[in-house]
Design a protein around this nucleic acid. Sequence first.
DNA 1: CATGAATGAGGTTTCATTCAT
DNA 2: TATGAATGAAACCTCATTCAT
Lengths: 216, 216, 216, 216
Amino acid sequence: MRKVRTFSNDAALVNERRNHIIKIAAELIVKKGYNNISTRELATALGMSTGGLYHYIGSKSDILYLIINFTAELTGQTLDRFADELKDAQPLDQLKESLKVYFETVDYYRDFHNFVNHIMLSLTLRDRRIVYQAESRIIQFFESLLNSGIESGDFRNVDAKIVAHNIVAAANAWANRGWYLKKYYNLDKYTDEQVRLVLGQIAAPDKAAPLGLSGR
Amino acid sequence: MRKVRTFSNDAALVNERRNHIIKIAAELIVKKGYNNISTRELATALGMSTGGLYHYIGSKSDILYLIINFTAELTGQTLDRFADELKDAQPLDQLKESLKVYFETVDYYRDFHNFVNHIMLSLTLRDRRIVYQAESRIIQFFESLLNSGIESGDFRNVDAKIVAHNIVAAANAWANRGWYLKKYYNLDKYTDEQVRLVLGQIAAPDKAAPLGLSGR
Amino acid sequence: MRKVRTFSNDAALVNERRNHIIKIAAELIVKKGYNNISTRELATALGMSTGGLYHYIGSKSDILYLIINFTAELTGQTLDRFADELKDAQPLDQLKESLKVYFETVDYYRDFHNFVNHIMLSLTLRDRRIVYQAESRIIQFFESLLNSGIESGDFRNVDAKIVAHNIVAAANAWANRGWYLKKYYNLDKYTDEQVRLVLGQIAAPDKAAPLGLSGR
Amino acid sequence: MRKVRTFSNDAALVNERRNHIIKIAAELIVKKGYNNISTRELATALGMSTGGLYHYIGSKSDILYLIINFTAELTGQTLDRFADELKDAQPLDQLKESLKVYFETVDYYRDFHNFVNHIMLSLTLRDRRIVYQAESRIIQFFESLLNSGIESGDFRNVDAKIVAHNIVAAANAWANRGWYLKKYYNLDKYTDEQVRLVLGQIAAPDKAAPLGLSGR
DNA sequence: CATGAATGAGGTTTCATTCAT
DNA sequence: TATGAATGAAACCTCATTCAT
């Protein structure tokens, strides 16, 4: 976590204000584009004065960093939750459950995912790396989950790296291609179909049972 | 094709200059972001003066339209080529061949795909629709190709819409997530793996034969 | 009064700054022409930064509107003052007194009159109408004043419309043909001569006594 | 007559083209304002190319000079015609006739009068002097005409300078306040009324006869 | 003589950022 | 801590003028 300038010594206040900024700014930027939002406009939307905004950030582009960083932390938390909740389940159940939760998270934070997509090209290399790492981490989570299943013989011997990558791509598609997908699917249906496809790809020929947590 | 202002009456010259603009601008924008390229900078990169640039466009944002439009026309041409070349082939061969060519096209024009991704939020609704249509068209191409195979009994009865969408998502991923994918794949390998996965999803249980054009 | 954009909510401040802008801009424009004054130059003359100027106006042409509007309001005030001060006087005294005051006003605000003259062709129809109305109002003031005198038998039966128009033309001439008139007249002398001419035109043959308020 | 650059040696051609430029440019400028007409637009209206225009003028502002100069020459010609045609007539007839012809001329060339009015503030001092001289000359024409009549006892002893000035002001008003005057008058009626007023001012008390050439 | 593509200075306007209050 | 007026650099765009063809 890089330092962002503030004139305040009250860490709790800074935190509160920044969370507010992150939420509102991501929303606005996704709606109109980063460069079409002026700091004046943003401050108004935040219920602050222009000067007030600069008490909690050092520059406009710091907002990018704060949002990027927030999104990356989200990923971390999501993964930690997965790791914790699923540590005793069967590979197949781990996969199904984590797909479901992952898609839900992406849906809930879709503004942030769209934001990242839009802003990537404008980021400094330094900030871009934060995004890379977060995305890599989530791909690797699914990759190793798949590999565990392959090793244990629960899954067929597929290219875990690409399947994991496709999972993340499918989740992102839900966020930034909603204009198309929502004409035909809602989140549940979309998740179900993607899960079905993934399971079809990895199902060990002899072990059947596609949807629904086994044993439930 | 909407009208973009020009001061020239020489259609061939306008065409030549605009193609140049499209190519160079897409490259620059993908590298630095639309709002981080000034018209002066762009003009210099084009080997023109600022004034000269404005002989062939009416405003900076017209460049967005020109690129969007070019990309949409690309899609159209790609599909026309597919339709023509594959009209007599078997469904499976049609699918394999079109996947291969489609991925190649996306790879070749990856700047344009990245451009679209980056700029979407800044587009007017009118321009956004051009993108929507182009993307929809390519998804529908794969969708109906899959449906033909399903009807003829060559493919298993899958959700053609989502498989088609995933194909397009996978192709786009190659363009805008290259920072990750290229660490592990090159275009050929990536295409092969994605083709293998798609075929795995649709293969009618009794008809085997995965990769390679049947009969070749 | 149309809305002109400002970023300030302090109405008093906006008013103060705009009055400053109106005064200085009219002066400068009359000296050099609207299109030969850049906003940078104007801002400097105003003791502001370019950005500061745009806190109180939305565009350069808003300045035209502000000046036009100011001039129109002047006219209104002048007429209101006339109506109030002269309501009990004799027609002849009303005319003499209002001519005197009107010429004084035009002289004092001659920059504004010259401005209007110069800028008319560049105005939008909407702004031009403001000028038309203000000018019409002052002509009509003199016209009805003359008509009252005619009805009461104090004035000869002249074409009140054209005499009123000539009065306004003579006043404007003092403002925008000063280069000629000031070689031979000062304001007092010019006013006296014009008053004498008007009185000569309207004097009822039997009622004598031209210059000087009757009874003074 | 100052030199204006041309690349042509064919004096007749230069003359023809410049007359065309003067006519069309005055019209366009009066309609939209000098600074709202680009040389491109002007060239198009003239049926020339931008480059072609610059074969006959040295700079855009030369057009101002050409028009100013043309207007000044008009004045000269008008006066010469007066002097010639009226040299044997009676003072009263001279005045009536010259007023009539003068008003007609101003009406016919009202675009040029409006042009001068609009552009005055943008002129160089040098060009402004041309306007001053032309206007002065016409005022002086009427002034000396009036003085002759006064000396001969045909006219009352009025301030000839101001009456002459008012005549010119009334004529100009017809050109640049047409928006008001044309609601109530046409040229003939306006001329008649103004003539009547002037004659009323100067008529020697004993010599009657207002309108109509005496003896006609 | 005619054309119109090209130039580039300079115009208007925006906006991130600062700082006196 | 909060405000919002002020700054000024830099953005987009226009247009008078030139010159190769």
